[in-house]
């Protein structure tokens, strides 16, 4: 029987890494606020930079950050990429946009999904807002924000991205 079988040319050699992730104090507070539908950052007492998600310290100054600031649902696209290749087990069908967005009131960006947009029209400096899941579905997770979508506001000049106050372009 075995003589009939094909010659072995490949072997399956999967590697599984099992983690238990502990959020730590600052991200835990951030996630507790996310669960309530509020996006918060932390301000550095020395340089005033606002970090989101907060890590509990300012990388630039090397000091602990404690002051918490509520951020806007509005944000600016700092950079983005259009994803064309499907990712295994990811329900989102390509092409779709992954963007670095800076919420108004923060000085750093985080990565999130964009939707309700024409991919070709998305650009650096574009104004967007968070679209939250229904309240019943909120958990300790960043995907309480389902995605960001474009809003009808003037572009933010490149040198102003990441410098808007929580009041956005008005403030």
């Amino acid at each position: 029987m075995s003589e009939e079988q094909e010659v072995v040319t490949v072997v399956k050699a999967p590697v599984y890494l099992k983690y238990n992730f502990t959020a730590g104090a600052a991200p835990a507070r951030f996630l507790a606020q996310i669960k309530k539908g509020v996006l918060t950052g932390q301000r550095c007492p020395k340089c005033s930079a606002v970090y989101v998600p907060p890590r509990g310290s300012c990388g630039g100054c090397g000091v602990a950050t404690e002051e918490e600031v509520v951020l806007s649902n509005k944000a600016t696209v700092q950079s983005f990429t259009i994803v064309y290749i499907p990712i295994p087990n990811n329900p989102i069908q390509p092409p779709y946009i992954i963007a670095n967005v800076v919420p108004d009131g923060a000085n750093v960006s985080f990565i999130h999904l964009m939707s309700e947009c024409v991919n070709e029209d998305v650009h650096i400096g574009a104004r967007v807002e968070a679209v939250w899941k229904p309240k019943e579905e909120w958990g300790f997770a960043m995907d309480n924000i389902r995605y960001y979508r474009p809003i009808d506001e003037p572009n933010v000049p490149v040198d102003q991205i990441g410098k808007l106050s929580v009041n956005g372009q008005e403030g």
Binding site: P14, V15, L17, Y19, N20, A23, F140
Partner: peptide, 8 residues
């Protein structure tokens, strides 16, 4: 907050 996850 803890969460288990597996990277394969």
């Amino acid at each position: 907050l803890n969460q288990a996850f597996e990277l394969g």
